[in-house]
Amino acid sequence: MHQWIQLLIEQIRQTTLLEWLAVLLGVAEVLLAKRNNILLYPAGIGGSALSIFLLLESGLYAEAGLSVYYVVMSIYGWIIWVRRKNEPPLPVTYASKNEWLIVLLITFGGWLGIYLLLHHFTKSTVPVWDALVSSTAWAGTWLLARRKIENWVVLNISNLFAVPLLFYKHLPLFALLTVFLFVVAVFGFFDWQRIYRKEKQVN
């Protein structure tokens, strides 16, 4: 245990300014998401853009691809949340059966597709694990963009697998960020449930 702590401290000491900035933007994004604040999207775009470069350097190709997806989905989510000026913002709701089918398609179809790409076209040493983290995060981010309460559950499935993967790839700061995201997502789930009940009472 002492050896792991020493390794963690040493790796944190070697953490670059870009890594710190990416992590700080990631923290800002999830805190803003928990508060149902639209500014989560510009924070997410900035953090994801930095993460693409850092993850490619570490050989986590699917995670880097996931960051590209985050940028695209952040733009998509930003547009959906704002919508037209004269319309109310998209309400917080639970996912429908059809939306759950899309989630399953993104998760399992994405996992297979990413795994095959990593296995055949990259030097990834963890294609199965990397693909699983990315595909579940894809599904969770899609739910987040549509303001579905279950996004927190699906994203936390990704977080559970991501933490050991990031430590294994010597990215301790990103791993600790993911632990933090996991905890915030638990609170976010209950916060969004309260928002849903409040909006339902108003309507």
Rank of each mutant, 00 (worst) to 15 (best):
M73C: 06
N156A: 06
K198R: 13
K148R: 13
F167A: 02
E10P: 01
E199G: 10
A95V: 01
E19W: 07
K198F: 11
Q201K: 15
M73V: 02
N203V: 11
I75L: 13
G109K: 12
L21K: 03
G46V: 09
L66P: 09
E87C: 13
E10I: 00
I79A: 15
F108H: 08
I75V: 15
I38L: 14
E63D: 10
A28H: 07
L143D: 00
L55V: 00
N86I: 09
E150Y: 06
D191T: 10
G59I: 06
Y196M: 11
G46K: 08
H120I: 03
R147C: 05
G26T: 03
V27A: 08
W152A: 00
A33K: 05
V72F: 15
S135F: 08
A139N: 03
Y69V: 02
L32Q: 04
L17I: 14
E10C: 05
G188R: 01
L104S: 06
P172I: 02
S48K: 04
G47C: 06
A131I: 05
A95N: 02
L118A: 01
Y41S: 06
A33V: 04
D191W: 07
I12C: 15
A175S: 08
L112K: 14
A43Q: 10
A175M: 03
H2L: 15
K123Y: 14
E57C: 02
V179P: 03
N156R: 05
G46W: 08
N36R: 11
S135V: 03
V128P: 13
L39K: 10
I75S: 08
E19L: 06
E57M: 12
W100N: 04
Y196E: 12
L177E: 00
I149H: 00
V184N: 02
I149M: 03
T16G: 12
G188Y: 04
P89G: 11
I106P: 08
V153A: 13
P42S: 09
Y61K: 00
M1G: 13
S48W: 02
V72I: 15
D191I: 01
F167R: 04
P91L: 12
H119L: 15
S124Y: 00
L143S: 02
S134P: 12
T16H: 08
I75P: 03
Y94K: 09
P164W: 02
L50T: 08
K200V: 11
E99M: 12
L104T: 07
S48F: 05
L177F: 08
G113R: 05
G59W: 00
A162Q: 04
W81G: 11
F187S: 09
K97S: 12
L104N: 11
T178C: 01
G59T: 06
V27C: 05
